[in-house]
Design a protein around this nucleic acid. Structure first.
Lengths: 181, 181
DNA sequence: TCTAAAGTGAACAGATCTGTTCACTTTCTG
DNA sequence: CAGAAAGTGAACAGATCTGTTCACTTTAGA
């Protein structure tokens, strides 16, 4: 393993979250992590590559979290798709909630074709596909798109307004939409 | 009036939209607008003040747009709150759609107490209150919060994934939620 | 037409940004 | 224990950032 590399990713992740991507300088990440600049540039060719590594790690972590929650619900006979909003709720209530890395990355790197923007878009697509799978055969693509919209809506409301009840509200809305179906 | 001031705000608005707040330097705004640096700093004490002026103008513009659409719907006997999603749809389909200024400002200036972050949060609160008013006496605060969540969800989906059908989807969801009520 | 306000252009300050280089030291491994 | 790999620290480059200053020019109104 490469403990420095991981430590850099973790530190960068925290600072990017709290202050944004552009506002967080390389030197700041180095000072916080205690790693030398030469080492950072041995592991990552550029700041962009570091950002992508952070997003990649976050992507894997978050998808795993959702998949495990869905699997657990399926075993317990619960509606699998609704537990996704419970995961959101737990996230919002945690100390480390500073909004969605991917939505923020999308906003800061808005240029069409930008690697960071594309990665973020792909993550959101993957999330929607996970929602689609968790709906099972009784669901359809439109339903998945609706729930994905509730998902992102809840994150933005929770972050921009500090309204941590957004996940519960979105869950209630999801239940109504599923029932109406 | 002050044409230079307005021209600076318009140019800054466009560049902030396309490239983000941190990524857009003062010199860039000056080059695009053809205004001198001394003039910019005579009208705005700092970049932050320019950003706030852009957001203020955008706030007034957008609220007016929504209020006029709601008023028109009320006169025509339509459900007023649903036309809000038609406004969103027209915005997404327009050339100048680069996501929501306020959500993006919120993301880039995430520090608690930051003036830019607070302004963005207030804008979102004002939008929700407009939704609440347009619901009339048959609605309630929870319903307004739900529609505001759909509103922000649609914007984020449209921007991060380039899915311009998000407004129509959100409108359909809004109709179902109103009907279920 | 005269005056005051507004704007220009260019230089400058000082900080900060990403990224490179290199001699030296530490750590790991066979 | 020896050699390779990884990391350090500091200096450096060159670009870019926000913001200031000032002598000069343009514009607008009484």
């Amino acid at each position: 393993m490469q403990p420095r590399r991981q430590h850099l990713i973790d530190t960068a992740h925290r600072l990017f979250n709290e202050h944004g991507y552009h506002a967080t300088g390389i030197d700041w990440i180095l000072a916080e992590s205690g790693v030398s600049k030469a080492t950072l540039y041995k592991h990552f060719r550029s700041k962009e590559e570091l950002i992508l590594a952070v997003l990649q790690q976050r992507h894997v972590y978050f998808m795993t979290l959702l998949e495990e929650a869905v699997a657990k619900a399926q075993k317990n006979g619960q509606q699998p798709v609704l537990v996704i909003f419970d995961v959101l709720d737990a996230w919002f209530e945690s100390e480390g909630f500073f909004g969605c890395n991917f939505i923020k990355a999308s906003a800061e790197y808005a240029a069409a074709g930008d690697a960071i923007h594309e990665f973020a878009a792909q993550h959101k697509l993957d999330t929607q596909q996970l929602i689609r799978r968790s709906l099972g055969e009784s669901g359809d693509d439109t339903m998945a798109a609706e729930l994905a919209l509730l998902f992102d809506g809840a994150i933005v409301v929770a972050h921009t307004r500090g309204d941590h009840g957004a996940a519960k509200l979105a869950k209630k809305m999801a239940e109504q939409l599923l029932a109406a179906h």
